[in-house]
Amino acid sequence: MASAREPLLTAHGVVKRFGHVQALSGADFTAYPGEVVALIGDNGAGKSTLVNVLSGVLSPDAGEVRLDGEPVRFSGPMDAQRHGVETVYQDLSLAPDLDAAANLYLGREILRGGLLGRIGVLDRPAMRREAVRAFAELGVELKDVTAAVTTLSGGQRQSVAVARAVAFAHKVIFMDEPTAALGVVQRARVLETVRRVADRGICVVLISHNMPEVLSVADRVEVLRLGRRVASYTAADTTIEELVGAMTGSLDGPNGGKEAEDGR
């Protein structure tokens, strides 16, 4: 059913070498609007490299990336952001001493109008108002957007990082191990948030090691092994055993394994 729609983000035959190491050897990737797609693979399978290529951190040695059907070549993460592609980094990439509102708008501050804005005076009330709205939209409860991020819990910090991506992404959000450092309750909260973001028509690409989590939140799962996509599954029709098998290569995916071997 997914293939009936137009893909939002695709990669074809992406190659990336680091010296003698070939991190990606013709990797493919497909993501549709409004879905949560999990990208899984064993350590060294090329997940991080692929995400870095797709989010503009690295430029590929060969292959093609298409966004909305148009070939794109991001000159950096900022360029990707201008195209509506945001990343939530594993370390969250927040300034812990600044408050949640300031973090939300870091690098994209709202300035006052007129002469004051011309000399760089911030419109803090507007930033706080917008921050409250952005958090509320995600269903995140943050008692005080003026409290330094360092005073927040792990889950709340995660929410701030996610909210920042959501506030500015209109196409794709990459999330690298978003729940790795969280407790059970907070983990559920974040996954709920991920779902809600996808429901807004944004594509969420989830990089995770946690198979039960992948199956519970993702619509589709793409499996990387040795720098290639070896399988892609609909989450509802697969099992943990099948995913692990595809990751380690002990069994072939039903359709995906074939598809990737075709090299198309």
Binding site: P77, M78, Q81, T87, Y89, D91, L92, S93, L94, A95, P96, D97, L98, L106, G107, R108
Partner: peptide, 11 residues
Amino acid sequence: SNPTAVRRAGI
């Protein structure tokens, strides 16, 4: 506070 985050934010 976090130079890496600032760099990633395009500053």
